[in-house]
Every structure is written in C-alpha cells, then in structure tokens.
Write a protein that binds this DNA or RNA. Structure first.
Length: 467
RNA sequence: GGCGACGUAGCCAAGUGGUUAAGGCAGGGGUCUGCAAAAUCCCGAUCGUCGGUUCAAUUCCGACCGUCGCCUCCA
C-alpha cells in the first residue's frame, strides 16, 4: 500500500494520487506579517517541511509555494500604529521569518510570493467572478455570492443556514446575504490601495491565496496545507472562489490541516493577539533545532500539542542519543554488507516508510529512528566492523534527514577548541600518573563550563553538553 | 446553541476486536569505567467513568465526566 493522506474535505485517509504523476503541487498558507512568528507557526512549518522532505524522499518532484500575506486589516493597523508602511513592516518580518525558519532547518519553498505582488491577478479573478455571476460590486466593494456556489460549507462541514443562525458579527445590511464575503474593499483614507474597475481599493483577505496558488501552481493543486484554525472561513472561501472562477473541481485534491499548539495543557491555543505564546525566537534562544523539531514531530500532526520546556528538554536528551549513534560516522560502504546489522537497518527503514506512508505518522517514524540508533550503539559497543557500522549509520542519517534533524551538536568549531584539547591532554597525563583528584577536578570544572569529557577505551572525547 | 477532535504508564506519545499495548524522557537495579560520563541490559500501564454489542473491547456503539478546536482575526 502506498502513501495515504487524511483529507480534511472527506474526513478520511485516502490513497495519494497526484494530478500529474510524479509531481506534487503543494501550497502552504504562510503567515500574516503583522508580528513575529511563534512556536505554533514553527510547528506548522516544521510539519509541512517534513511532509515535503518525505514526498521528495519517496521520489516525487515537489513544487512548493508559500505565500506572505502583506496586505490585510491587522497589518495596516500595525503599520499605522508604528508609523511605518505595510511594505517596510512586511520586509522586516519576512527577513525575520526566514532567519527563524532557516534556523529550524525548514527548507524554503520554491516560491514565496507576497499578496501585493499579485494585485493584477486578483483583479482579473474578481472581474471573472463578477462576469460569471458569482460576485457583485457594491459602492466600490466586491462580494462573493455565497448562495451561488453550491457546496459552500463542505470543507468546514456547516451549512449556510447554520452559520447564519450562529452568526456573532453584526451584518452589513447592504450585502445580498449575510455570509457573502469581501473579495475587494474600498480603501479608507490613508490606506494603501490600488486602482481597480471598482475604484481605489485593496483585496479582501481570502482572494490572495487563490490568486497566488493559481499563478504558480495552476487551477488545481495536490496539497493545500495550513492550521486547523484557518479552515473556516479562509479555506472554505478559497474553495468557493477558486472553483467558481476556474470551473474546475476539486481546487485541492488533499486538504491537510495541522492541529494547534497550546501553551500548556488545559490552555487555549497560542495566538498572537492573546499574547499567550512563545515566540519562535525565544524558543531558538533556549533550545536547539533538533530538540524543537523532535519535540514537534513526536506527536502526530493532527493531534493538539502543548508546548512545555520540560517536553523540549526531554526531546533534547533524545536528540543527544541520536547524535552519539551518528558520532564518528564511518564511510558509507558502496553496497550493503548484508550482515545482521545491515538487515536490521533496512528493516527499520521499511518500518519508517510504512509509518510515514500512514498519513505522515512521525511519532511512529521517530520510534523507528530510536530503535535503529540503539542497534548502532549496540553494534559499536560490541566492536562491529567499520563497514557494517557505516552502513547502518548511513541509513540512520538518511532517516533523520527526512525528519530534518541536523544532529550536528551544539556548536561547530570554536576558538576554545585548542584550549580544551590542551586540558584534556594535561588531564590524561595526570590520570596516567594516577592523580585522580586533580583529573576529576578538571573534568568537573569543564562540565560546569559546558564541556563534557568522556573517557573511553579509545581515549578521551569531549563534546558541548547541555547547559 | 451547531459542527468536530481528544482522554493510553510519573511526564510526553504511537497503536490494535483476541499472541509480549511502540518509542522518548524521568526513576530503580546491573554491565562497562580508577571514579564518572556516554552507551547498553533488566524493571513499570489493562488503556477517563458507566452501560451495550460480541465467544472476545483499550480498540465498535451509547450515555456521562473532563479537555480542546471551529462557528470572529488566527499556523
């Protein structure tokens, strides 16, 4: 059985079949640029990065688009409050976003368009929707005619009547129907705006994603991802306007939505405007990439997760064990040595693939990685050949790469290196002279400085420890 | 109120109608070590509560309790 993906639209796992064989067209909703990213965003992007890595590992060519929404009410407000422009604000947060995502080893998309770069596409789409009778202009605004699109509500599983009944917002009386949503809005004085057939204005919130995905990926996509909180109204509206415009269905073959991150058990989800979040930067200041990714991937993407320092610290200790397994990685032999260890490694790899094939079950995949790490450590302890070890390590590395774990240790070469080596040498002379107390003192004091010494049969090795 | 999800060892977290319920962290014991560290070995759960279906349920159904998401901006 091949890859199965849970599709939010049908609420079941389905066999993954792409529109075009061998190619995956994937669009992931990017952030609104009114503030810095938090670890909830990080979780979503780590998850979709892992999905992308796995699809590539499975041999697909992946065309990945992730937008930046740089025109939207909140951004306009924030820019105004900070006395800056939306463009400058966006530049600032985009730079920061890339810095943080790079640090999390989240690979960049093939295209990172900004909403303001596709205004002509948006206008063309809105015009098309009006022509087809799916939208109507009203004093410079343009609204999508929700009742015209049969199937509105199918993604979020609700009917127009239901929503109307539970509506919590005051309704704009001019609209034909309370649920009709804005495709284009008249600019208020001082707001950024573009010329359009309906006067000076700007796009509504949902249309930009349809325009960007269509521009870079065509009228139909294989995977569209985002957080569960964006299913309604954002993705629901995207389906409506995209399918109404193109006349093609489905707009998206597989809707993939990750569950949301909470600050701690029993809390609500993290949200920037509630302030109950840990910023991506804070997390990166405190923890390493391996720990953060491993923590986030230790639970299934459709299960809600609580961010806790203890949890990430536990993940860090696990990551340390994986690093040990990959330590002094022997060269990968040209082919499998066909011994017991190699076969076990291949079994682990198969189990990893089976787990990931089952709707990207990263917790189960991670379990396979730990099993293999134990086998490698065991083999090394019992003096396995470099060839045998090298092969198993190469498989382990292959799998941890799919998970996007760098596993490179805390820091690279530093200026402290020669001095640490010197101390290690001095200490070993003391040990040779059986001056245990002094030797232990050096070790203890280095540990306090974050350098861990380990005496093994092959001599003393050292590494940066957790502080 | 409507729609949806979840409740598994001290903590995190997979999974299955019926052989030993993954994996990680923490804890206890052993091996190794001058001592440590690292690594490794051994040790722990009957699966929210109460009913039902079934030869058999943690796994299916119902009720209840608890938690969370969406219905408004949101990854």
């Amino acid at each position: 059985m091949g890859l199965q993906i849970y599709n939010s639209m049908t609420q079941q796992k389905e066999e993954f079949v792409t529109l075009e064989p061998g190619v995956v067209r994937m669009y992931v909703c990017g952030p609104n640029l009114y503030g810095p990213a938090h670890v909830g965003h990080a979780m979503s992007y780590v998850i979709f990065d892992t999905i992308k890595r796995y699809l590539k590992y499975r041999g697909y060519r992946v065309v990945h688009v992730q937008n930046f929404t740089d025109i939207e009410d909140r951004i306009i407000e924030t820019a105004k409050a900070n006395g800056t422009t939306i463009s400058a604000l966006a530049d600032q947060y985009i730079a920061r976003f890339f810095r943080e995502m790079d640090a999390l080893n989240v690979s960049r998309a093939d295209y990172h368009p900004r909403a303001t770069e596709v205004i002509p596409d948006i206008i063309r789409m809105v015009e098309g929707l009006i022509q087809k009778g799916y939208a109507y202009a009203l004093d410079g605004d343009v609204y999508f005619r929700v009742r015209q699109f049969k199937g509105y509500g199918s993604l979020s599983r609700r009917s127009i009547e239901q929503m109307e009944a539970g509506a919590r917002v005051e309704v704009d009386e001019r609209k034909e129907h309370p649920m009709d949503f804005a495709l284009w809005k008249t600019a208020k004085p001082g707001e950024p705006s573009w010329e359009s057939p309906w006067g000076q204005g700007r796009p509504g919130w949902h249309i930009e994603c349809s325009a960007m995905s269509m521009r870079f990926l065509g009228e139909q996509l294989d995977i569209h991802g985002g957080g569960q909180d964006v299913i309604f109204p954002h993705h629901e509206n995207e389906v409506a306007q995209s399918e109404a415009y193109s006349g093609k269905a489905p707009f998206v073959r597989y809707w993939v939505h990750n569950a949301l991150l909470k600050l701690r058990e029993g809390d609500e989800k993290m949200t920037r405007h509630l302030g109950n979040f840990v910023s991506a930067q804070d997390a990166l200041d405190k923890f390493g990439t391996d720990a953060i990714r491993l923590f986030l991937l230790s639970s299934h993407y459709r299960s809600p997760l609580s961010w806790t320092d203890e949890g990430v610290m536990a993940a860090e200790r696990g990551a340390a064990r994986l690093r040990v397994a990959l330590r002094d990685m022997a060269d990968k032999p040209a082919e499998s040595p066909h011994d017991a260890l190699s076969q076990q490694a291949e079994t682990a790899r198969s189990a990893f693939v089976v787990a990931m094939d089952d709707d990207f079950n990263t917790p189960r995949a991670v379990a396979q990685v730990f099993d293999l790490a134990r086998l490698v450590n065991q083999a090394r302890d019992s003096g396995a050949s470099a060839q045998s070890l090298g092969y198993a390590q190469s498989v382990l590395k292959e799998l941890t790469d799919v998970l996007g774990l760098p596993l490179m240790g805390r820091s690279g070469p530093s200026q402290a290196e020669p001095f640490v080596s010197l101390l290690v040498d001095v200490r070993n002379e003391l040990r040779a002279a059986r001056q245990w107390a002094l030797a232990d003192d050096i070790r203890e004091r280095l540990t306090q400085l974050g350098v861990v010494l380990e005496d093994g049969p092959q001599g003393t090795t050292w590494r940066y420890g957790a502080e």
